[in-house]
Design a protein around this nucleic acid. Structure first.
Lengths: 326, 326
DNA sequence: CGAAGCTTTGCGAACGTTCCCGCGAGCGTC
DNA sequence: GACGCTCGCGGGAACGTTCGCAAAGCTTCG
């Protein structure tokens, strides 16, 4: 059915081996023959069969990306960027979500692992032991999860949080509320509490709740009781819940209360008022994660400790923050 | 490195063929032997190598899904649902986006096509001729694109549009605006124009524009000029642009103007006010599309005309629609 | 009791590719 | 001018699996 390497070989008047070489390591075959081969291949519409290729020992040229929830608007831009990045390096990206349940994650990994050269595990629910076992079987990169000895990408919100604190401080806010739903990235480095208090801003922490819209709705009813004039939410979705409920309560944003989200998802830029938020650049994230995995697959840094790369964050001020009321 | 079928065979004291059969067609091997094999496989941690399997002629057990833009919030829930559905049938889903550019789509198809058993092409930019050529090489399902002879899934907005018209009519609206950015699904069946006028609602069509937030912002400035009291937007994103600009103009929604979106993305449920919108059920869409492709792969309906399945829509009334001002 | 049919299992070829080995031609060195 | 080295290419085994074919065991029935 499909056109094989053999047909290309006879069409170009060379052996199968030479055609193979022309594709996998072109410098080993003379320019003239190479060109003949390529022309024949193009005319016949030949493309190497990935199954045969990977069976023989070469990799699959695919990366696996396992994220908690594709439907979470934070991820799609990252997936998109990673696809683009990986494609340029000759890789395809296989995306799957774990629904944040260990059983599902295991099943997903089992289904995907044989088809890829390496795995990016985002906020894995697996035990440290299991992850260690897994990394023995195939290249692994962890995002927002720390296990000694496994390459890791860490999202740091510290800079963004600091900028948010500065931003609110400059606007004259003194009392803030943080709606928490436990972000792994916040567990290292300076806590949000410390960042705010360093600037003489008091911060009361609500929760932890589930990271849902309704959480924001609920939290919004509490800010008055705390006499706070600013709210930082676990993510944009929660922030929108806050916005929604404040509007319903007749509280004006940003005139009476300022609101800040996290992630800079699409939600933030299209809300009314548009949402000030702490941005994590999906392009950079994708680039770092895929490069880290590709390097690991290539066996770089085989010695030495497992690499740890960090991606930062910054505040994107929009219309949901403003001067504190007096 | 990895454990092969041979090791399982010798561990279970049977031949390779029997182990193979135990996995691919269990009813052909006696219960007792099958159990022995499964135990040995489990103990050794054996899983069939997909590369070898697909090389030998069996399929890849993967479906390809090519959509215009993963970052468009309409798609992630569909992708998620399709993954879940396909997994239950033993398939993995390979998602890629085409960025709505023909060159990218071709490249994407080339990269993915060898790794899958069939392809779902969403709103393909390819020429009819090319699609026909492609369908000769592998099973294809088209969504929102009609090419005679190729299985197709058609999203019908007719019911949703009709319900929207009824909804607005019952609220006493008479003049409406439609912000258009050309949806393929609208090109068949009754036009939105006809649906509205059948209920004695006048509808002026703006555009077509690009389906962006800013389009909605722009369109919102025009509704007063048309003396309209209701807006139907190309999708939720555009509708949010409308909402945003109306708020800025001091026009109250829904007291002065009602707004309806299309797609029922996450955006619609978390906006302020929450957005009435025409919902296309992602679960049903995913189910129909993947089942259609899997049936096509299985060779069902080889004779007869190419199947055409339709998925409907319905209005989800929320807070952005209300009685027309008098 | 034997032939015929069915079920259960084993043997071995084939899938399309990569890569190790070996061969011959050309070239530089002493 | 013989030797060794490099370079370009061909031969063929191997990757792990599926599946057609056939052998062996069992049942059934005349």
């Amino acid at each position: 059915m499909a056109v094989t390497i053999r047909e290309v070989a006879s069409a170009a008047g060379v052996s199968v081996s030479t055609v193979s070489r022309a594709f996998v390591s072109p410098e080993q075959v003379q320019a003239a023959t190479r060109q003949r081969i390529m022309e024949a291949a193009a005319k016949l519409g030949y493309a190497p069969n990935p199954a045969a290729r990977s069976l023989r020992g070469a990799g699959t040229n695919s990366l696996g990306l396992i994220i908690p929830d594709i439907a979470n608007p934070f991820f799609p831009p990252i997936v998109k960027a990673m696809q683009a990045r990986a494609r340029r390096q000759g890789y395809t990206v296989l995306v799957a979500d774990s629904d944040e349940r260990e059983a599902d994650e295991l099943e997903t990994i089992a289904a995907v692992s044989k088809k890829v050269d390496g795995l990016i595990l985002w906020a894995s629910t697996l035990s440290e032991e299991r992850l260690r076992e897994l990394t023995g079987q195939m290249p692994l990169v962890l995002v927002n999860r720390h296990v000694p000895g496994i390459p890791e990408l860490h999202i740091s919100l510290e800079a963004g949080i600091h900028q948010a604190a500065e931003h609110l401080r400059a606007y004259g806010h003194r009392r803030c509320v943080f709606v928490n739903a436990s972000r792994a990235e916040l567990s290292r480095g300076k806590s949000i509490q410390e960042s705010f208090e360093a600037l003489d801003l008091s911060l009361v922490e609500l929760g932890p709740y589930e990271p849902r819209f309704e959480t924001g709705v609920h939290a919004a009813t509490l800010v008055a009781a705390h006499e706070a004039t600013a709210v930082v939410a676990h993510n944009d979705l929660v922030a929108l819940g806050v916005l929604h409920q404040l509007a319903k309560l007749g509280v004006s944003v940003p005139d009476q209360v300022s609101v800040i989200g996290i992630d800079d998802t699409l939600l933030a830029s299209v809300s009314t008022p548009s949402l000030s938020t702490i941005r994590i650049d999906p392009e950079e994230l994708a680039r770092q994660a895929s490069d880290l995995l590709i390097d690991t697959i290539a066996g770089k840094g085989g010695d030495g400790p497992a690499p740890l790369v960090e991606v930062g964050s910054r505040l994107v001020p929009r219309a949901s923050t403003g001067p504190a009321p007096r």
